[in-house]
Design a protein around this nucleic acid. Structure first.
Lengths: 136, 136
DNA sequence: CGGAATCCTTGTAGATACTG
DNA sequence: CAGTATCTACAAGGATTCCG
């Protein structure tokens, strides 16, 4: 097979028809948003991202960055210095996305306690015997 | 263990700290958004959802609905009639989310061709020999 | 420094069959 | 009609290692 799994968008030929799904699939990744946020302040280096995101592995950083780059959301600039220096920067389109994402964040913050309480109530009502040694 | 995998939010005790992640995790599911959209027009029955969403399995519909219900985004109303009749409806909070999601959709539609072209360009530049029998 | 390749675990989702 | 249970597949993500 010529195209092995490179880790870059495995399901390339999907064409979900629905643009919503496309955004979501892109943004849903565990790290995409955090990278977008981290890079929103200006050009940022690979290592800075790696240390700033906290919890991300080298692999996932590279992978996510590549997908973002592929989608035209970040640009990759290699400075051919002696210690290689690579900087990532958001494209204008990505900045728009970033703004939209902030509205989502706002919603999340407004309703985080509501959701948390809903969950607690639900869990209690549907498995009261499981939350606390009742089944043992 | 008392709590087997019921299919409802397997990684229950995560507490990502970041509210953005919470939204995303919830919305990122393959079907959540479509259900939100389908139910936005008013109360809708299980079967209506199943037939309206096209491609969703009974299982995933149930699962997603449950998670949505758990998070306080949909309400489930059982009408104790002879053929069971269950209706799902968005909560006010979910309606807000739905609106926010529409902005994301707008972004997606505005930039769908941009993204598509970016991908095409990227793929061509990074694996020209793979797109067209070059490696065979 | 930045990244690619490999291996492994686990969540997410599909198909199918059974039930109240 | 509206689920639930089980079994399976796949792909996202983590850890580690090697390379320019």
């Amino acid at each position: 097979m010529s195209r092995r799994n490179t880790g870059v968008t495995p399901q390339v030929v999907n064409a979900h028809a629905c643009p919503v799904r496309e955004v979501l699939d892109r943004v849903a990744g565990k790290w995409s948003v955090q990278i977008l946020v981290a890079a929103a302040h200006g050009p940022i280096r690979f290592t800075e991202l790696e240390r700033g995101i906290e919890g991300i592995s080298r692999r996932m950083l590279t992978l996510t960055l590549r997908n973002l780059e592929r989608d035209g959301l970040v640009t990759r600039t290699v400075h051919p210095t002696v210690p290689p220096r690579v900087e990532y920067q958001l494209t204008p389109v990505a900045r728009e996305l970033h703004e939209t994402l902030q509205r989502l964040t706002a919603w999340a913050e407004r309703n985080r306690t509501y959701v948390a309480e809903s969950r607690a109530t639900y869990d209690e009502r549907h498995a009261p015997d499981l939350v606390d040694g009742g089944g043992a």
